[in-house]
């Protein structure tokens, strides 16, 4: 990894990230977290900060196919990885079926957990297109939501999986 040292003696590294299909080269410090690169350097602010210690899941992104907490991953550790953020879920302006089902099922309230929640669900359905309700709940158990009690979120994921959904 290429590193440069500035006049103050602070070392910076050149890393390359593929985010939502596009490859970016960014300069980071050793202590820069992935979430900060996404938000501050790439202006992808759909990735949220809720706790910054890996407890709430609002910073969830998909890295090499797996949902991870970008708040506790060094940008350096993500060098060379493929990352999907919420901004990369809709394609050419067309919503993903999960985004549609979150709207249909009123699974969004304040919306702050929503990006992370959708990405956790997206990774689940990619791996397991027909999950049980328990598997759905497990997949999003690392994403805290304070508004919905997860009731309609679970329904939305079921709907996106093509499963029947009960009312209320």
């Amino acid at each position: 990894m290429q590193a440069i040292v500035d006049k103050e003696g602070i070392k910076r590294y050149l890393i390359s990230l593929t985010v939502n299909g596009d490859t970016y080269t960014v300069v980071v410090k050793a202590n820069t977290m992935l979430v900060n690169v996404l938000r501050e350097e790439l202006n992808l602010t759909g990735t949220k900060k809720g706790c910054e210690t890996g407890d709430c899941g609002s910073c969830t992104v998909i890295m090499d196919g797996k949902p991870v907490n970008s708040c506790i991953i060094l940008a350096l550790e993500a060098d060379g990885k493929e990352i999907t953020t919420i901004e990369g879920v809709a394609q050419n302006g067309v919503l993903d079926k999960l985004q549609e089902s979150f709207l249909n099922q009123t699974a969004v309230q304040c919306g702050y957990c929503t990006p992370g929640m959708i990405l956790s669900a997206k990774a689940l359905l990619t791996r397991n297109p027909n999950p049980t309700e328990h598997e759905i709940r497990e997949a999003i158990a690392g994403n805290l939501c304070r508004c919905t009690g997860y009731v309609n979120i679970v329904k939305a994921i079921k709907e996106a999986a093509g499963q029947p959904v009960d009312e209320h």
Binding site: L44, T45, G46, T47, K48, K49, T85, I86, E87, V89, A90, L95, Q99, F102, L103, N104, T106, V108, G111, Y112, T114, P115, I118
Partner: peptide, 17 residues
Amino acid sequence: PRIDGREKVTGAAKYTG
């Protein structure tokens, strides 16, 4: 559907931070 739903599911919604 929520009037702000699309912005919130696409990550476009801007919060103060």
